[in-house]
Structures are given as structure tokens and as C-alpha cells.
Design a protein around this nucleic acid. Structure first.
Length: 277
DNA sequence: CGTGCTGTTGCTAG
DNA sequence: ACTAGCAACAGCAC
């Protein structure tokens, strides 16, 4: 279930091992994931090169060398497992990146993705915004100081459900289906409300809630998966306590009402009819 | 055994 | 231009 907190946690887990290490091994077990894998470019970018930076933008993990970037997206079911062995131990392992760390030891990162909605792409050069999927992205919710005003201004020009709006990566990144329901529940705003009808005050509440929920989930992930390298490939996604998502028919944690479920632009949406206005 | 649902996002059709 | 709906796929609950 990779939403932003999961990707952030994963990035933090692989970063210490990758940065400063040299990529010595690269193996692909298929030609395509969601898109065709640009094997030639990835080899040019990674093989024999030192990793200079590992970062996250939206839900993309960026692995940088002096040649360019490898850009990894986990889709819906992607995961990266750390192993001492280059040989895949899991079904649906699609590629393996091997490094030699500063102590001269070999370490392997296995990309596993049953549904194959994820992808790995290559970008030559050092301008990550040159990538078509990165260039159009909205601000990072945890870095944008004036998120409320940003959303308010963009929201005025549109007439769509607020839930769909905050899930639009060109507006703000990192709010997936789960955290969209959670954030709106926390903010007390109904998911179906139209962007152009919301007041600045409501955007302020939504912004606060998005930041709060994401921060809390990142913290939970960090606590659950403290030492990525000791997990030896067992780094599953962590459990987050959810107040709305998946709680259809259960009692709202704020009041005596029951959490409702509906479908909004094709995605399941959970809310409390009483707490959210 | 089906059948219907699932964390993403780019493309297509309206 | 803006929005809604779909496709890509395996696995799992029922």
C-alpha cells in the first residue's frame, strides 16, 4: 500500500546503504513493468557509478549518479526488499540492484511488484524536473508553507469533489485514496463538497489535516521499520491506525454515528455524515 | 469454482 | 479546457 508515507519510509531505509556506494550489479527479470524498462539507459546511469543521492519526490524514489537518475515508482503493490543474496527469494521480483558498499560488501535491493503497476525509468542529466512525470507535479504537502492558500486559489478555478482535488498530483502530491479519506475526516469536510464552494477556512483545516496525517504515518513507518537492513527482505508495509478508511459500518471515533462508504470518481470513500460538513 | 474488489496514474473519450 | 472513466495486473475475500 504505497502512499507517500510508505515511500518516504522506504527511501529513508535504502538511503544509508545506497548513498556513497557503487552499483556493481543490475539484473532485469522482464522487459516491462507498467512501461517498458529502459535497460540500456539504466545500465549507463547505474552500473559502475557511485550513488550520489537518494531522495523522494511525490511517490517517486530518485536514485542519482553523476550520469543521471533511476526513477522508481511502486504503483499499487511494489516494494523494495534488502537482501544479502542476489538471487530473488520472492515471486514477482522484477529487477535487482546490487551495490558494493564502502566496506567492500555486496548488498542487493530487490524490486517486487505482483500487479506490475509500478515502473522504473531512466533520466540522463541532473535536472530531475526534465522528466515528464516529475515536471508537472504540485508542491510537497509537508514542504509547502502556504498549502491552504495554494489549494484555495487552485480550488476556486475548479468544480470537482474536494477528495478528487486533493488526490490530483498536479495540485498537491502524495495524497492517495486512503489518506484523502483520512484527511477529510480529520478536517471535518465532506469528500463530495465542491472545490469552488469551499472557504479559505476549510482549506486551512484540510491543509492542517493532510500535514498532520502524513507526518503521523511517516513517524509510524519510521518506528515500525527502524532498521531496514535488518529486516532482510521482510520489510512489509506498516499498519497505520485509520479512523475512516475501511471502517464502513463501524462507529465513528468522534461521535455515535456510523462511518459511511460511497464511491467517488471510482474510488471507495469513507466519511462520517455527522462530523463532516 | 467464479465474482468483485484493491494502495496509482496516464491515456482516451466525452 | 476540464472532467470522468478506463486500462494495466495479481491476489484475496466472499
Amino acid at each position: 500500500m504505497p502512499e507517500l508515507p510508505e515511500v518516504e519510509t522506504l527511501k529513508n531505509g535504502i538511503k544509508p546503504a545506497l548513498e556513497g556506494s557503487t552499483v556493481t550489479y543490475l539484473k532485469f527479470y522482464r522487459d516491462n513493468l507498467r512501461f517498458e524498462i529502459p535497460k540500456i539507459f539504466l545500465k549507463k546511469i547505474l552500473l559502475g557509478e557511485k550513488v550520489t543521492d537518494v531522495s523522494r519526490r511525490s511517490k517517486y524514489i530518485l536514485i542519482k549518479t553523476k550520469v543521471g537518475y533511476a526513477i522508481i515508482h511502486l504503483g499499487m503493490t511494489g516494494n523494495v526488499l534488502y537482501q544479502k543474496d542476489k538471487k530473488p527469494s520472492k515471486k514477482h521480483t522484477h529487477f535487482v540492484i546490487g551495490i558494493e558498499n564502502r566496506s567492500g560488501e555486496k548488498e542487493y535491493f530487490h524490486y517486487v511488484d505482483p500487479r506490475r503497476f509500478g515502473f522504473i525509468d531512466a533520466l540522463m542529466g541532473d535536472e530531475v524536473t526534465d522528466h515528464p512525470m516529475i515536471e508537472r507535479l504540485g508542491p510537497e504537502p509537508l514542504e509547502e508553507k502556504n498549502l491552504a492558500k495554494h489549494l484555495y486559489k487552485k480550488g476556486l478555478k475548479k468544480k470537482i469533489a474536494i477528495k478528487k482535488f486533493i488526490m490530483d498530483a498536479s495540485i498537491v502530491v502524495g495524497v492517495g485514496n486512503i489518506y484523502a479519506s483520512e484527511s477529510l475526516f480529520d478536517a471535518g469536510v465532506l469528500p463530495t463538497r465542491l472545490t469552488c464552494d469551499l472557504e479559505l477556512k476549510e482549506y486551512q483545516a484540510i491543509s492542517r489535516s493532510i500535514k498532520k496525517i502524513l507526518k503521523r504515518a511517516i513517524k509510524a513507518g519510521g518506528t515500525t521499520l527502524q532498521d531496514f537492513k535488518n529486516l532482510q527482505g521482510e520489510s512489509g508495509y506498516f499498519e497505520i491506525s485509520l479512523k475512516a478508511y475501511g471502517r464502513e459500518g463501524k462507529k465513528c471515533s468522534n461521535c455515535k454515528h456510523i462511518i459511511s462508504k460511497t464511491t467517488l470518481s471510482g474510488r471507495s470513500t469513507f466519511f462520517c455524515k455527522n462530523c463532516q460538513v
